[in-house]
Design a protein around this nucleic acid. Structure first.
Lengths: 350, 350
DNA sequence: TTGTAGGCGTTATCAC
DNA sequence: GTGATAACGCCTACAA
């Protein structure tokens, strides 16, 4: 143990509050009181100044782990998403990270391909995580107690047990239908996942219901199932294009599917939007990369993440558990290059 | 729902090692010894069994914060990237997360737009982070002591102070040049960032040097500066296309730039690859979305992240600081639709 | 206004 | 083999 000047450190030795206290000639709790806590603590101004100065001088920084242990909280939140291959979740994460880090919270990420969500949750629990944001993972598919005594905010799925931030998926479907109908389309298809996360189901429901209300049915062969990926969108679209009487318009449960469909159209020589109108949902950035650019329903992705964190943090302040709240964010139609007027009003002459 | 034995907790009350010890009739440190540590601990087999059984029964899980405090480490690593708008970093992150979480490490993310890297680093330090992975951020641009006594692995940049995992950028440039040369191109351009992270500079250098070695110079008007984004790639390309004598081939410092260029070609009516050959670098997935698909130099993105974490973990095992190592991963040419033979061998007849 | 005592849940170091 | 005892660095009482 080196005998150096009182203040100098050869690094390595971490600077603790005790250290500061010693140099300031006060007790360690006093330092703690001054440094981190509510300004209600009544401290002699001069003492406060001295402690602050010394802390500053020797570069004291509280150990968050120790704080966590004492406080029984970690000032960290977890964000669980199904995968980063969907830019939607990346944007959500980005928004969440921004707000969280501004508030001094760390963000622990887990990319969970459905199966290991439970393990990730346990790992987060072990770290005394303050809260968890679940995006793209249906809470209802988790084992019953997986989320117990965990502060949770869901993204894009309704729930009466947990707080939720979501884009208005039902409305998205409705807007999509209205757009395609207003263009004169009558033979309209949908591609979306089968047993998937709630947002997709709502988009589908809103879409189909609105069509039906307008007297435009959707024959079952025009309702295609595909996972929410480019590849599956591609093959689903190929199937549609090979039908004797393909649809003149198509709504996809998300942009990835739509981009797959876009590609399939290109490969099959179908002109967008002349031969077929294509509409996605989410408004991920790469939709503007393809030609023609993808028409879509914009969902405020990073805003979802940002709000989810704010909601979570608000829940953390309260000590009595808050009743779950739901924030439904508006979506809006973004018409770009892949939707246009129906050419064959009655269909069938292709 | 299991039978409620006297042991059952009404939740809330966290189960601690002391709890287990009490039930097993041993001391708490003994529990700790049995549960978490090296099997070298000599414990009576029956005691061990009993403790393990009870721990299992009441669902004991060690508090990672407490472990961290005692161990002076957190079993967490930080990953800092400039932004998630470049899919390259997302893939790196994804690879890193996978390996880290398999090893029981948490991943704290920071999306740092250059300015606040230092603050993020301090926040991570406060959390007793075990190590940091820096991707897309030039270590040399950080203030001198920003990385002090931090376990660091850099991605895609050389360093003699820190360990590094990188794609072979020099080679990437060389391969790019050889590919375009072999197609017969003579009038060749490059678009890349000016004062940017090392990888881009090396790609440029390898490219230019190889061209020069082949006797093909690059006039300064064919060397365009642009940030590594789609938008900037777009406008740089537009400038090139408006020249009296545009290049017949083009290499971009990364795929985002190339995709912007791709779009600019589409907008200007230039046919790829007939009028111009376009080559990107990275091989991000969306390069296959556009038509024609983007030719590129593939960099093993998630592998970079995965290896960076493995390297970091290895460094953590060692207690004597390891000398920094550098792993250079091979890159490879991926010819898709945007590169083809030169039409005007001598150039100038366009 | 400040110091003392005790605790958060682990791990490490020793005696026994 | 096992159990006290003492850290780890902070925070919350409560007493002075």
């Amino acid at each position: 143990m080196p005998i150096i000047t009182p203040i100098m450190r050869i690094s390595k030795h971490r600077i603790t509050a005790t250290e500061v206290a010693r140099l300031a000639g006060v007790s360690q709790p006093t330092v703690s009181l001054i440094l981190s806590r509510n300004p209600k603590a009544r401290i002699a101004p001069e003492t406060r100044q001295r402690v602050l100065r010394i802390a500053e001088e020797i570069g004291y920084r509280p150990n968050r782990l120790a704080q966590g242990l004492a406080n029984r909280r970690s000032f960290a939140i977890g964000v669980i998403v199904p995968g980063f291959d969907n830019p939607f979740y990346v944007s959500v994460l980005s928004g969440a990270e921004r707000v969280a880090s501004e508030a001094g919270y760390a963000v622990l990420i887990s990319e969970s391909r459905q199966v290991d969500v439970v393990q990730h949750l346990e790992a987060l629990r072990d770290r005394q995580i303050d809260g968890v944001i679940l995006a793209g993972i249906a809470a209802s598919t988790l084992p019953p107690r997986a989320l117990d005594d965990l502060n949770v905010v869901l993204i894009n799925q309704p729930s009466d047990r947990y707080s939720t931030v979501a884009g208005d998926s039902l409305m998205a479907g409705q807007i999509a239908a209205e757009h395609l109908l207003s263009l004169g389309h009558k033979r309209i298809a949908f591609i979306g996942p089968a047993n998937a996360i709630p947002a997709y189901r709502f988009r589908e429901r809103g879409f189909v219901q609105t069509l039906r209300a307008a007297g435009v049915g959707m024959p079952s062969e025009l309702l295609r199932r595909a996972n929410a990926t480019i590849a599956d969108g591609f093959s689903a679209m190929r199937t549609l294009l090979r039908m004797p009487e393909p649809p003149t318009a198509l709504f996809c449960a998300n942009d990835l599917i739509a981009l797959g469909a876009h590609k399939a159209c290109g490969a099959a020589g179908a002109q967008l939007p002349r031969d077929i109108s294509l509409l996605g949902c989410d408004d991920i950035e790469i939709g503007t990369l393809v030609a023609p650019e993808l028409s879509t329903i914009a969902v405020p992705q990073s805003e979802l993440g940002a709000r989810a964190v704010r909601l979570l943090l608000r829940q953390l302040e309260q000590e009595d558990p808050m009743p779950p709240v739901t924030q439904l964010l508006p979506v809006r139609l973004v018409v770009r290059g892949t939707t246009g007027p129906a050419i064959n009003p009655a269909g069938g002459e292709r």
